[in-house]
Amino acid sequence: MPVTDVRTHRVRVPLHTPFVTAVRSTSQVEALLVEIRDEDGRSGWGEATENWRVTGSSIAGAEAAVAGPLAAAVTGSDPDDLEPATRALAATVTGNQAAVSAVDCALHDLAAARLGVPLGQLLGTTRRSVATDVTLAVDTPERMRDAARRRRAEGFTVLKVKLGRGEHDDLARLTEIAEAAGASTVLRVDANQGWTPKEAIRLVRAVEDRGLNVEFVEQPVAAGDIEGLAEVTHAVGLPVMADESVWSPRDALHLVRTRAVDLINVKLAKCGGLRAARHLVALAEASGVGVLFGSMMETHVGVAATAALAATASGGGPVADLDAAWWLTHSPVAGGPRYDGAALVLSDAPGLGITALADPAPALSPR
């Protein structure tokens, strides 16, 4: 039963609260959902999101890549034989990682659906939920403090704090949040490339001196400044994570060899899907580097695929930063995952559990 059809669906879903970082601000998610069908009518789903500032991906570009060379690469292939099919995808286009990821994930989803098992089980786990943090978007210290209190009341015990708007203001923001959230709350700091190495070192040392409960610092400097990243990592006690600096196993290997980071953030839209992500995870584990499974601002489709992979993780340390779909007013699909407080609960149905596109839901009131 080979792949017979590759379809694309454009969706636009509003956020219940604007999402602001050091590099961009958005009030909606625009995504391209990819649906792959076999001749028996089963479907597999994947997602590519638009993100000009980080990945350079656009809906139009992803749609062209999927409808053209990527569809040609998988049509007629056997979805039960994932390795050659996904390997062919990775060699089909240069760049366009979000589009490659969408088709790769759809193939994995279809393979699991054909076996009648959840995607996580295909990847090697029976876990059906993954704990996630929740992000505090960049704002004034007072508003971020109030947001921290609301998120705590909603059951989130790990807060990812977006910073990178200025060294002294960032320290004030983080201090306000730590006091409001309480000592039992774990904080993760994400600067989104917003600091120079010297600024990052001063700020992280100040955080350490104040005894704030920070778990790690993510992407403190520009993505291409690997020397600066290493400088920060060697100068501070807190673990340092790379996000925008690591897209591929080659990037990860360079970071490992230069001892530039303690952890890497694995995102399917950056690396090109589940096949590539599993290679990244294997490399990190073999090198003693920690892994966080993250996402772009995307819908339940993309988040579910990453969560299925995150559910396979073992050992201690950070696991998931998968609150992206939590920000949406509704899911664009029927079925799939849901949030239960700080837990992302995966479907027990075959594959990702997605059955169809959902009817548009009314927008919710801002939180």
Rank of each mutant, 00 (worst) to 15 (best):
L255H: 10
A252W: 01
A181N: 02
R145F: 10
D251E: 07
S184Y: 04
G237I: 00
R165H: 13
V221D: 11
V138N: 14
K162G: 06
A183P: 06
R150E: 15
V161A: 12
D251T: 01
A230D: 09
V217I: 15
E227K: 13
W247Q: 06
V240G: 13
L212V: 08
K198R: 14
A181L: 07
A235G: 03
L159M: 08
R145K: 06
D251Q: 08
A180P: 07
E142T: 11
R165T: 15
T233E: 05
E179D: 13
S184L: 01
T196S: 15
T196H: 08
I226S: 02
Q193E: 15
L238M: 05
E244K: 02
E199W: 01
E215V: 01
F216P: 01
V189F: 02
V232N: 06
G164I: 00
A200F: 05
A242Y: 03
D146N: 10
P249R: 02
A242N: 08
P141M: 07
D225S: 04
T135N: 12
A230F: 09
V189E: 07
E176L: 00
N192S: 13
V214H: 10
D251W: 04
V158G: 01
D251S: 03
H168S: 14
A148W: 05
V158K: 04
E244N: 10
A172R: 13
A148D: 06
T157N: 12
A223N: 11
R149C: 03
A242Q: 06
E215K: 12
L163D: 09
E154K: 04
R165W: 04
S184W: 02
V161Y: 11
R205F: 04
L229M: 11
E227P: 03
M144K: 05
E244W: 08
V138C: 12
D170N: 04
R188N: 09
P239L: 00
A148P: 08
T157S: 15
R145C: 08
V214E: 08
P249W: 01
F156K: 02
V236D: 10
T233N: 14
E179L: 01
D225N: 09
D209K: 14
